[in-house]
């Protein structure tokens, strides 16, 4: 940190934020209204439903019950939660290490290249998810392209099990979430001042020190944002774990989806969803509070 202080003298924006005036409230209104109508109201509905019962057809019957929560506190669902969080964590870490150099290279590229490179990161994902995923299945399957390549190159003596393993799940998750790591990091790298990096080098830092002590700390907001944008949505993502993992290891998104559909038990699904939201909000609240006190 001392190196940054030496070369940058970052301003503290702490005393800068003002109390809002009427205009500020008016400008914030659309966001507040949106949050109220389409985030708070559905969340409240979810919580209400989680205390309700359902009829034979799966329609909600508004009789108060704690049954859904009693059922939810079971080792089984905890295990499912942990599996989901574990995959999300692994995906986030790998995306970080794989994505950072890419984001850095794009952010440091000549100005007129950056837009093009950014587009190139995103364009593969403008194809249909299923086609992309089935393409991966074709590549990774036992008689697939990768195996025939490895066998004919003599690296493997016979086809390996790649598809329908945890490795395939992580590969699929990393593939689909990588852009959501690269883009936010890019926006942090892009604003790095060249003079700052040069100053770091001038003070005698090699590339390793320049990165560990100046560049990475300065791009930390982008890394943190990328980590959020990858970790949070990947917890409940289950299409990849079922398609590329063979569906043998249930995750929380899949369990909730099945309770809503084939289980015809929306209240129980809602209770699991409410617990997921609670765990998440608590974790975020604590980390933020801790950071502020730090």
């Amino acid at each position: 940190m001392s190196l940054i202080a030496a070369v940058s003298g970052v301003h503290d924006s702490g005393g800068y934020r003002r109390p809002p005036n009427l205009v500020a409230w008016l400008v914030l209104m659309p966001l507040l209204a949106w949050l109220f109508l389409f985030v708070i109201v559905p969340t409240v509905m979810l919580v209400v439903v989680s205390f309700a019962e359902r009829d034979a057809l799966g329609r909600i019957v508004y009789d108060f019950t704690l049954q859904n929560y009693i059922r939810a506190f079971d080792w089984l669902w905890l295990k499912v939660f942990l599996t989901s969080i574990w995959y999300a964590l692994l995906t986030t870490l790998i995306c970080m290490f794989v994505g950072y150099p890419v984001a850095y290279t794009i952010g440091r590229a000549p100005l007129h290249w950056r837009g093009l490179l950014l587009m190139l990161v995103m364009v593969p994902f403008w194809t249909s998810f299923l086609i992309r995923t089935y393409a991966w299945i074709t590549i990774l399957s036992k008689d697939g392209l990768l195996n025939s390549l490895l066998v004919s190159a003599g690296i493997f003596s016979h086809s390996a099990e790649i598809l329908y393993t945890p490795f395939a799940i992580v590969l699929g998750l990393v593939y689909n979430f990588l852009p959501f790591m690269i883009l936010p990091i890019y926006t942090s790298v892009e604003k790095l001042d060249n003079a700052l990096i040069e100053a770091a080098y001038d003070l005698g830092a090699g590339p390793v020190r320049a990165f560990s002590q100046v560049i990475i700390p300065l791009t930390r907001p982008g890394i943190a944002a990328g980590a959020m944008l990858v970790f949070v949505p990947s917890i409940a993502m289950f299409a990849i774990t079922t398609l590329m993992g063979g569906g043998t290891n249930p995750t929380i998104g899949e369990v909730i989806f099945k309770q809503f559909t084939s289980g015809r038990n929306q209240p129980f699904g809602a209770a699991l969803g409410t617990i997921l939201l609670l765990i998440f909000v608590l974790a975020l609240w604590i980390t933020r509070k801790y950071r502020e006190e730090d």
Partner: peptide
């Protein structure tokens, strides 16, 4: 914190509750 709710909420919960809304 509220801003993160739509990100963490499983899609089926969001779809059905928005439908009802």
């Amino acid at each position: 914190l509220l801003i993160f709710i739509p990100m963490v909420m499983p899609e089926v919960l969001m779809g059905v509750s928005l439908l009802v809304l």
